[in-house]
Design a protein around this nucleic acid. Structure first.
Length: 865
RNA sequence: GGGCGUUUAGCUCAGUUGGCUAGAGCGCCGCCCUUACAAGGCGGAAGUCGAGGGUUCGAGUCCCCCAACGCCCA
């Protein structure tokens, strides 16, 4: 074995072995209970970022452990066709050649996207392999593959037949850059600086004018009314009158509407039903016309008079200056206002009256809320449930049609002759109403999230009742970031409960976001992003995984720095060397997958085995609760400080003892084996590599999870460790050279065995001897080891007696402080009355112990001379 | 405006039913190349747990209030 661990050499090799051995398939545990996770599908054109690395590390820990526990564990991988994102990428490619998608045409364009997918779609999969994701590649799915497309069609048609899918003219959010409608959730609202323009609209009866304030003056071209609050005293007389719309010379009415906020602007607002959702409602209530004055290119339409053809922002200025010319502007104020931006390309979205398809959500939310309320699905951490409920209870109908080409085309046909709408699973060939064969298919495709919403069941074969669907649905655990609870989790819940009558997963594990050290979100544009693949190349995948897992407290964001990863790498190296030492120097050979405990373990062996089992049990509980960072923090510390720093050091002296060497070897084998097993889900590569030195030729990935029952612990180890530490501290504080002998007289209430003395000698590099308490402690220092064990060291010839005095004084001061606290506590009569018996008696015992200790130290100080 | 989160060592963070002397990694100081690992070992210093109030025998932990920062929704 190399003296240092070389991850790059090891990782690719083991991944191949795992994959080729079929270890990622649930079939490796044919009799196991099913346990499944579907991956949150990354965008097919995407590249892996730290968020994925975190998300995948967590899922891999969960699935690898379940696999080792004997479950038929399935982690289903796949990708999302990511409508807008992917289409944008390919359009960008086209633009380099000076082309648009319209130049190449719909079919050719889609072919080009597929070609792109074929070329770059493997990127993500290969990056996942680098991370070590134990996904079952034989079950890999794509939201746009045949099976999933069939599921999408069925859901669309069923929803339509149930009256839950409808087409309507509504104000939707339109992205003029992506050229498509967006759902509410795809719009990011930001407070942008702007101006509030106050425009005077003259009454037609000549009785002056009414002033309205607007942040979007260009929309006045489409005004068809003025609205005031009916209770607003200022405008009581205005309601019912008409005004003349400046520039357009259109007579429009003033209406009273409860929806108007009286304290905004002048309290009177212009009504543009075609370009504002609230205005649309007002318009509907008062029978006002909708005039579309801004088109899908965000340019002024022919209905915009002299401004026809102008861009919306150009028109804003032009309208304002024309209004100024006719003296229709009262004033212009600076004004911060919320502006919607496309979450894809950040272009300012335009509210637009448009004919789109919508999912009626009322009927879907109730059962989806109930599934969480009755714990069929539970969020971890639980507090996310509140966000989920709040979101679900305030949902608007979901606009699902997108004016894109890349996506699931809407299965609706319109009859050219009678106008009938035909929605069907199979392509329609004739009109169901008039029989005409002149049909036109809807041009639009579905929101990407529509197919994602079906992911947990569509990937398993639904709507067919496949074996996989029967076996693995509903899935066990979903692991995802809080940022897509609304986009994805909520929609999966709605669709799954509606179509399968079951919640799609029982545990929804929400993790935070990976951030940089200043707490900023990592992004390519701000240049603070760490690239997981670069980090893997530098530190190894295990190090990246372990750092993320240890840092990821449930539901909290993770500030990540390469220092964390470096610490993990050092751990990997430590583990490597511990194993190398065990195998090469301690001659630990093959151990069986199970059992293998020494028949007659020595006390050191019994101790580390009992600790191993105790820690294994705690880790198991923590992992069941998805507290991965706690579990692996615990294991990290156990392995390093107890196994490596203590037991391995003990083992060095045991190796020279014929009677003890075999038991030690067996113990060391068992301990390292179980440490590898426990660590494997987090750091699969290095553990698998090390296992090959220890194991019986089997693979660690499918080895049985450790035994977590408890074992008794011999009581002598604690005082042994304490005495050793005390001697080391003494040496260190007095700068006693390593080579100098330190004689320690060990005094114990009960006799201490030889092995104990030998360990003290070897671990503290001292010469201990059992003896009587010195008749006079003068010229000695006293080391307390608890459990009735003390050590005395003669100072003569070793250290200056005076140098010892501050040491003792400090020890006394420390005990005095703690003693005072405890005494005060006990002196409080209600403490004894109200605190539980064991707490009180423990406190009494402490006081007693501290008194004894204090007494001894004081005597020592007095006699020091 | 509503909701959520964060505030603990120099830095970044753990600390889940309230209960021994509040932990880790990194950094810092001292000693050590002791038969794996100097990417290491041993030892050490370092915290009024954001401020204030309350409940309790007992509060980093529960309640109230305030402040700063961050996120989500409107």
């Amino acid at each position: 074995m190399n003296p240092t661990y070389q991850p790059d050499e090891v990782e690719a090799r083991w991944y191949k072995v795992w994959e080729e051995s079929g270890s990622f398939r649930p079939e490796v545990n044919p009799d196991g209970e099913p346990f499944s996770i579907v991956i949150p599908p990354p965008n097919v054109t995407g590249v892996l970022h730290m968020g994925h690395a975190l998300d995948h590390a967590i899922q891999d820990v969960v699935i690898r452990r379940k696999r080792m526990q004997g479950f038929a564990a399935l982690w289903l991988p796949g990708t999302d066709h990511a409508g807008i994102a992917t289409q944008n990428v390919v359009e960008r490619e086209l633009r380099k050649e000076g082309l648009t998608r319209h130049d190449v045409g719909r079919e050719a364009f889609i072919e080009q996207v597929w070609a792109w997918k074929a070329k770059s779609g493997d990127t993500i999969a290969n990056q996942m392999r680098k991370l070590g994701d134990s996904t079952d590649w034989s079950r890999e799915r794509f939201t746009f593959d045949e099976g999933l497309s069939a599921a999408v069609r069925k859901v669309f048609v069923d929803l339509y037949d149930e009256g839950l899918m409808y087409r309507a003219n509504r104000i939707i959010n339109w992205c003029p850059r992506c050229h498509t409608a967006l759902s509410e959730i795809e719009v990011e609202h930001e407070d942008d600086p702007g101006e509030l323009t106050y425009i005077r609209y003259p009454f037609t009866d000549g009785s002056g004018f009414i002033t309205v304030a607007t942040t979007r003056p260009e929309t006045m071209l489409g005004d068809t009314g003025i609205a005031v609050h009916p209770d607003d005293e200022r405008y009581k007389d205005a309601i019912g009158k008409t005004v003349m719309l400046p520039l357009m010379d259109r007579e429009i009415p003033v209406v009273g509407d409860e929806g108007v906020e009286s304290d905004f602007g002048t309290g009177a607002v212009k009504v543009t039903p075609a370009h504002d959702p609230l205005d649309f409602e007002i318009g509907k209530r008062h029978g006002l016309k909708s005039i579309i004055v801004i088109d899908t290119e965000a340019k002024i339409t022919a209905d915009g008079g002299e401004f026809f053809g102008m861009d919306r922002f150009e028109a804003r200025e032009a309208v304002r200056s024309r209004l100024r010319e006719i003296d229709a502007i009262e004033k212009i104020e600076e004004h911060q206002h919320s502006v919607g931006h496309c979450s894809r390309c950040h272009t300012v979205v335009e509210p637009l009256l448009s004919l789109q398809w919508f999912v009626k959500v009322d009927a879907l939310v109730g059962p989806a809320i109930d599934a969480v309320r009755n714990d069929e699905s539970r969020f971890i951490p639980k507090r996310w449930e509140k966000n989920y409920f709040h979101w679900m209870e305030n949902l608007q109908d979901w606009c699902v049609s997108r004016q894109l080409w890349w996506g699931h085309r809407i299965p609706a046909w319109y009859c050219d002759d009678c106008g009938e709408t035909i929605v069907s699973i199979d392509d329609a060939v004739s009109c169901t109403a008039c029989g005409s064969s002149k049909l036109t298919r809807d041009d639009d495709v579905l929101d990407t999230w529509f197919s994602s919403a079906l992911w947990p069941f569509s990937t398993l074969g639904w709507p067919d009742q496949t074996d996989d669907f029967e076996k693995f649905y509903p899935t066990a655990t979903l692991v995802t970031g809080f940022d897509i609870i609304f986009f994805w989790v909520a929609r999966m819940m709605k669709m799954a409960v509606h179509f399968t009558d079951q919640a799609p997963f029982s545990d929804i594990v929400i993790h935070g976001m990976v951030r940089d050290m200043s707490g900023k979100k990592m992004s390519k544009s701000s240049g603070n992003a760490l690239d997981p693949l670069e980090l893997i190349a530098e530190y190894g995948a295990d190090s990246v995984r372990l750092a993320l897992i240890q840092a990821a407290a449930p539901g909290h964001d993770i500030p990540l720095d390469t220092e964390w990863i470096d610490a993990s790498r050092r751990f990997g190296n430590k583990l490597w060397n511990a194993m190398r030492f065990a195998v090469e120097f301690m001659r630990v050979s093959k151990v069986p997958q199970d059992g293998g405990y020494p028949e007659d373990p020595g006390p050191e062996d019994a101790w580390i085995l009992s600790r191993l089992h105790e820690v294994s049990g705690e880790i198991d509980t923590l992992l069941d609760e998805y507290r991965l960072s706690d579990a692996y923090g615990l294991l990290y510390n156990f392995a390093w400080s107890e196994v490596f720093d203590w037991y391995l050091e003990m083992a060095k002296s045991l190796a020279n003892d014929e009677d003890r060497a075999d038991s030690m070897r067996q113990t060391l084998g068992v301990v390292l084996r179980d440490v590898l097993k426990l660590f494997h889900p987090a750091i699969p590569f290095v553990t698998e590599e090390l296992w090959s030195n220890l194991g019986d030729g089997s693979l660690l990935i499918t080895a049985p999870w450790p035994d977590v029952s408890t074992r008794p612990c011999p009581p002598e180890i604690a005082p042994l460790q304490e005495l050793v530490s005390a001697i080391r501290r003494f040496r260190s504080q007095h700068h006693i050279p390593h080579k100098s002998d330190v004689h320690v007289t060990v005094v114990s209430e009960s006799p201490l065995p030889d092995w104990w003395m030998r360990q003290v000698a070897s671990l503290s590099n001292s010469i201990p001897a059992a003896g009587e308490r010195p008749t006079s402690v003068a010229g000695h220092t006293r080391l307390s080891a608890g459990a009735g064990v003390e050590g005395f060291i003669e100072l003569e010839g070793l250290v200056d007696v005076d140098a010892e005095r501050p040491r003792i004084e400090k020890a006394i001061a420390e005990v005095e402080t703690n003693l005072a606290k405890s005494v005060a506590k006990l002196a409080n009569p209600s403490f004894a009355d109200r605190a539980p018996e064991e707490v009180v008696s423990a406190e009494r015992a402490r006081v007693e112990q501290m008194n004894v200790e204090l007494d001894k130290q004081r005597t020592l100080l007095a006699e020091l001379g």
